[in-house]
Computed example of a mutant assay.
Amino acid sequence: SLVIAVLLSVPYVGNKEFSWINGIYDSVCAILLFPLLVYWGASGKTTDKWTLKICKFFGDISYPVYIVHYPFMYLFYAWVWNNDLTFGQVWAVVLLLFFGNILLAYLCLKLYDEPIRRWLSKRFLSKK
């Protein structure tokens, strides 16, 4: 997490004369460093029951979160930019959106994704 935070906190590398350096930085991150971090994360082992449950929960909701957060993200950005709001004015909404998106993703997982997958598995993967 710390490595990702550091890599993503670099706003721009280079200057007007050497703007291509920023492209090199972005390419190295996207082609080499981020896949390496994913590999390291996927290679990790969980040993206790609690950690396994947490990892399973976040793994299960990862795709639903990816899907549901986009409309809320753009609505939030539009609201902040159109009203020239500061973080101090919107932090409560940020927390509501953060936890609300996790809850909505979980509901989508349990009420839509898993039932559809079960139905499709029975329909197309069952032996006749």
Rank of each mutant, 00 (worst) to 15 (best):
L2S: 13
I4E: 13
I4H: 11
V6S: 05
V6E: 02
V6N: 05
L7Q: 00
L7T: 07
L7E: 02
Y12V: 08
Y12T: 06
I24T: 11
Y25S: 04
S27A: 15
V28P: 04
V28M: 05
V28S: 04
L32Q: 02
L33C: 05
F34H: 00
L36Q: 09
L36Y: 13
W40F: 13
G41R: 08
S43A: 11
K45E: 13
K45N: 13
K45W: 07
L52P: 00
K53V: 03
G59R: 05
S62C: 13
Y63I: 11
V65Q: 05
V65W: 02
I67H: 02
I67S: 05
P71Q: 10
L75P: 04
F76N: 04
W79K: 04
N82G: 11
N82S: 15
N83S: 10
T86R: 06
T86V: 10
G88K: 01
V93I: 15
L95I: 11
L96T: 10
L97E: 06
L97I: 09
F99S: 10
G100R: 08
I102P: 11
L103A: 14
L104S: 01
A105N: 03
Y106L: 14
L107N: 08
L109A: 02
L111R: 11
Y112Q: 05
Y112A: 15
Y112N: 07
I116A: 07
I116T: 06
R117Q: 14
R118G: 03
K122L: 11
K122A: 11
K128W: 09
